[in-house]
Nucleic acid binder design. Structure first.
Length: 277
DNA sequence: ATCCTATCCTGGCTGC
DNA sequence: TGCAGCCAGGATAGGA
């Protein structure tokens, strides 16, 4: 659901309203969302220095007296939302945390379910140290990718979903990237040839970039940008959620299977189980 | 090392 | 129409 493009969209739209603001008060409506009992004390009075993204995490760097003072690390999981509203706006029954800002506005963390997290940490870099490279960064080179795939002996799709291997991909964008590269989700990672790895790397970057341009994907009521708008990348889906419909590339009916307990969508013609020749 | 299952949650869908 | 039951999904823990 919220994967890299959706989280990136949230970060970009939250950044303007909150960077530079001071948190003048914190209200926790659901304790498990923030974990620690002292969340309110840790964040109250701090200034928001920077908002950034790592994988699917939203990081809000804090400072006190111009010195780093920990961070808030948020994760939307499936249904979390972050948005800034004028004081007095009721975010509805699923509100979990709210941060009052010094301009009178309020940053809301809302979640229909209770999987999302919005926690204070001393050292965000350390907390996120085990995550793999950012697919849109220069570190994600074809050579690195091919070597990394070969070093693992895993089924391709679950490996791509593994955040310690590569950051930010979720069910939707993995299915789309695999389709565009002509690779089957059940392929073994160590059997992916250098040119196929390079192709997959390019398609991952293209899919993510295009999805960011379109402010992510919305196909149910859950994901909305902080401004309340749906994304539009769902209109570009080639396979995700299209089982039973014809492949846009070849007309073959898209199939749904389960890989690593995840609903998985493939075109059996574009993504042959065994590599041709 | 890798894989599999359960857990957390709730709205929405399916089938009777 | 009403309702029970199932499913989706990201991350993580624990077991095989």
């Amino acid at each position: 659901m919220p994967e890299l493009p959706e989280v990136e969209t949230v970060v970009r739209l939250i950044r303007g309203p909150v960077e530079g603001r001071r948190i003048v008060g914190a209200t926790v409506h659901w304790r498990r969302t923030v974990g620690a009992r002292d969340f309110e004390a840790r964040v109250s009075g701090a200034r928001i220095a920077r908002v950034w993204r790592r994988a699917k995490y939203i990081v809000i760097d804090l400072e006190r007296r111009s010195k780093p003072a920990g961070a808030i690390v948020g994760h939307l999981r499936m249904t979390g939302r972050l948005h800034v509203e004028a004081r007095g706006v009721d975010p509805g029954p699923y509100k979990k945390v709210e941060l009052a800002l010094d301009d009178g506005r309020v940053l809301h963390f809302v979640d229909v379910r209770k999987f999302g997290r919005f926690e204070y940490v001393e050292d965000a870099e350390r907390e996120l140290a085990d995550i793999g490279p950012e697919p849109l960064s220069d570190a994600f080179t074809p050579d690195w990718f091919h070597a990394a795939l070969r070093a693992k002996r895993r089924v391709l799709k679950p490996l791509l979903l593994d955040q310690t291997f590569l950051a930010g991909l979720g069910n939707i964008y993995v299915d789309e990237s695999l389709h565009r590269s002509g690779l089957h989700p059940l392929a073994k990672s160590d059997r992916v040839k250098p040119d196929a790895a390079a192709r997959l790397r390019d398609e991952i970057r293209a899919v993510l970039s295009e999805a960011i341009e379109r402010e992510g994907s919305s196909f149910d009521v859950f994901y909305r940008t902080p401004e309340g708008n749906p994304g539009s990348y769902q209109d570009q889906f080639c396979v995700y959620g299209r089982d039973g419909e014809p492949c846009r590339a070849c007309g073959t009916i898209i199939e749904r299977l389960v890989v690593g307990q995840r609903g998985t969508h493939v075109c059996p013609r574009c993504q042959p189980r065994r590599t041709r020749r």
